[in-house]
Nucleic acid binder design. Structure first.
Lengths: 228, 228
DNA sequence: ATTACTAACTATCGAGTAA
DNA sequence: TTTACTCGATAGTTAGTAA
């Protein structure tokens, strides 16, 4: 987690970016905005750059500073926290991606009694034994990776458990709709086998059949932090 | 301005407040949330209380902690900054209050050429020589004082100037509507004679006549940070 | 002119512990 | 048990100044 004073510096830089679109700035200028010395501004820029939160380019007098997508992610996380306080109940994240066939692992996990009972209890439905895998198409260019935004949402958490001599970790769930169909949930296993550009959805239905989906089809998954 | 680490503590407390409605907490519990020691948590609570950002009440085991309206104001300011980054163009603040008759000072200032030219240039209209004074009715109970929220909005700034051997300060303006009528602007003089519960509105029209207003009538003033 | 190093200073943190 | 003090350690800031 980014230290508070660095996060603030990042926010200041992001605000600046809005005002002076692509104009180079000096460390003195930033220091003024931060209400700090030039030296402190310089040091913080160095730290933020080292952490991959910003990019710096020399430009004659001053330099061009842009907040990286990693940095935007941090700020967005903060934003979501505040949004939950000041604008509760309006949270929604939209994922778009293509359906693909997984290794069938989802079905195995979903069918475990340790999880199954909790699905029924906490999500209100008994899931079809299988998950719909969606590979996200990420917009590039400084856009926050939406999969990461889930961290900012309040999950429904299924407890981990022991079974057959091995342990099953906790699972974070979010109520969702797939192509408008409700009663779905996005699940986020702690030890996932896929990259961060893949999401898994469960539902009481066989989603492929119900929605007539085949590999490569585009779907829209809407995730809600508040009960549907 | 609140120090970053204190603002973060405040945010954590506000988030906690959402979760555990009115449940007492211990400094150990808060420390865990802050990922700090109990001692640090304690110290920060003391500081925040001293600054009037939170209220603390002893409750047997632990204490009840609420974020004060002052504290909410700080968080809201932060929220607005982030909102401008992630959701630009959707900012709007609604004021409600009662019309009252002022000292006629507004007319004097508005008529000054130094300001008048800037009104035309930056707001796009020549204001009627007089301001509509609105006394805000503040909701109590932990609600942020909306007048303070203006600080978070991006103003249109009229430069100060010298005239007749005295100096006139800069003035912050915000495009607004009054009871739905556009082409109005809320003005915020640096040296205002009224308290922070009063706002002044200008417009090319005589607003009282145009909207049929008399002292004590309720009006709704909507302020926008982006051009109307 | 601008950035960033070093060294001295100041603020924040947390272990130990009192109340 | 819980809160908050003291105080030594660490992190953050700034002045001076080199590059």
């Amino acid at each position: 987690m980014l230290k508070p004073h660095l996060l603030f510096t990042l926010l200041t830089l992001a605000e600046l970016g809005e005002e002076l679109r692509g104009k180079p700035v000096t460390t003195y200028f930033i220091a003024e905005k931060l209400r700090s010395s030039q030296q402190t501004a310089s040091k913080r820029l160095i730290e933020l750059e080292k952490l991959g939160m910003i990019n710096r380019f020399k430009r004659g007098e001053g330099e061009l500073i842009t907040v990286s997508s990693e940095g935007l992610k941090e700020l967005n996380f903060l934003f979501m926290s505040l949004k939950r306080i000041f604008e509760p109940g309006v949270e929604e994240i939209v994922f778009r991606g293509k359906v693909f066939t997984g290794f069938g692992e989802g079905a195995y996990y979903v069918s475990k009694n340790g999880y199954l009972n909790q699905f029924v209890e906490k999500l209100g439905f008994r899931p079809y034994p299988g998950t719909l895998n969606v590979k996200l198409e990420e917009a590039g260019k400084g856009v926050v990776k939406s999969r990461e935004l889930l961290k900012a949402l309040k999950p429904i958490v299924l407890q981990g458990f022991e079974s057959d001599g091995r342990s099953f970790g906790p699972v974070r769930c979010f109520k969702a709709t797939v192509n408008g169909l409700g009663e779905c949930a996005l699940i986020e296993a702690h030890r996932t086998h896929y990259g961060s550009d893949v999401i898994e959805v469960i539902s009481p239905f066989n989603l492929r059949r119900r929605l007539g989906l085949k590999d490569g089809d585009e779907v829209e998954v809407r995730v809600f932090s508040t009960p549907l």
